[in-house]
Design a protein around this nucleic acid. Structure first.
Lengths: 191, 191
DNA sequence: GTCTATATTGTGATAGAC
DNA sequence: GTCTATCACAATATAGAC
């Protein structure tokens, strides 16, 4: 996990501690879910007491913002990696999106189920993660958004275990993305 | 809201109180969000003390299950109402789905963001709510599921206020559903 | 930069009297 | 069926010593 701080600068010893705190918070989030991320638990992992954390971060919200910023960077890297490997089709991005989300289900929820703290996020992180998909749709923002909503719905229902036990999730992905991917450029491979 | 109890029977005075409790819980959920639904708050609305609630329900989970069962009934009614009015197209169901979800955002989340307590739900409620959409897709369960995922993704991102402020949400609905609705029967009106 | 002590606030749930 | 009293637990955060 890349845990570079939201503020970005390198200011010495306290910055290291801050990074440790964020890293531990992220690990607790994925291993134990949101309820596992308490100030006490974070502190315990670092062998200090909870009040000491407040010398490094203002409050718990600051931690969440840092985790969300990090999540966007990870998503962007996954997409950019795919593009560099020549896998810049809509289907390839969908596959990456699904894999990343299922590998980080709690982080995925943290970054999607509430309004984004956009003013506190580093400039451009959201746009960077979105760019490859928009480009794959030749700049059609509405199609890109529809594709995103479909992927988000699928991933969300899969994470929440809300599909019926016998559902063929792969099949739903296939027909859904086939429909949306082909809607911009009907009979031509999408690039 | 139809608050008939999950057990179904009419057993006299205590059943009425149970229904009142569920009704109040549902109202608090929508008015104040999930954190507003505390046993103390429910009791206060009914002018009794929190411990008295436990003479009518076993625990808080039983309340949630009852609310979810009720939510399915409401959705089913919305779809069946549309079908009876001759609005049995995929687009019409999508519109109903969206409206219902946006009118009951917290209830919608309660019923979608965790695994369904299927064994505790009255038989058939889930299938009844799903049937109209599956029929509109001529029985193609994969297409119905893809359509559901798209609608769920849209509604969820809308409720969470996760779209960028300038996003044209209606446009995304249009292109997304046009793609999915036309993927089964390309050039023919979908019924 | 870490500590102890503590404020403050909250939750779901039970025991037992009436 | 309602009450009072209370348990058992947990959370974020601050004050002030060292």
């Amino acid at each position: 996990m890349s845990t570079s701080s939201a503020t970005g600068g390198v200011e010495g010893g306290i910055e290291d501690r801050r990074d440790q705190i964020i890293t531990v918070a992220g690990r607790l989030l994925e291993e134990q879910g949101p309820d596992g991320v308490t100030m006490r638990a974070i502190a315990a992992e670092l062998d200090i007491r909870a009040p000491s954390l407040y010398k490094h971060i203002a409050d718990k919200r600051e931690l969440e913002v840092a985790l969300i910023a990090d999540a966007f960077r990870q998503q962007a890297e996954a997409f950019e990696e795919a593009a560099q490997a020549g896998e810049d089709t809509i289907e390839a991005f969908a596959a990456r999106y699904r894999v990343w989300a299922l590998e980080h289900p709690h982080l995925y929820r943290l970054m999607t189920d509430r309004p984004l703290p956009r003013s506190e996020l580093p400039e451009g992180v959201e746009a960077r993660a979105a760019r490859p998909l928009v480009e794959a749709f030749a700049g059609s923002i509405d199609h890109a958004r529809a594709a995103w909503a479909f992927a988000h719905g699928m991933v969300t229902l899969e994470i929440a275990e809300r599909f019926p036990p016998d559902a063929d999730i792969d099949a739903a992905w296939r027909v859904g993305f086939a429909a949306i991917a082909s809607s911009t450029k009907p009979a031509i491979p999408n690039r």
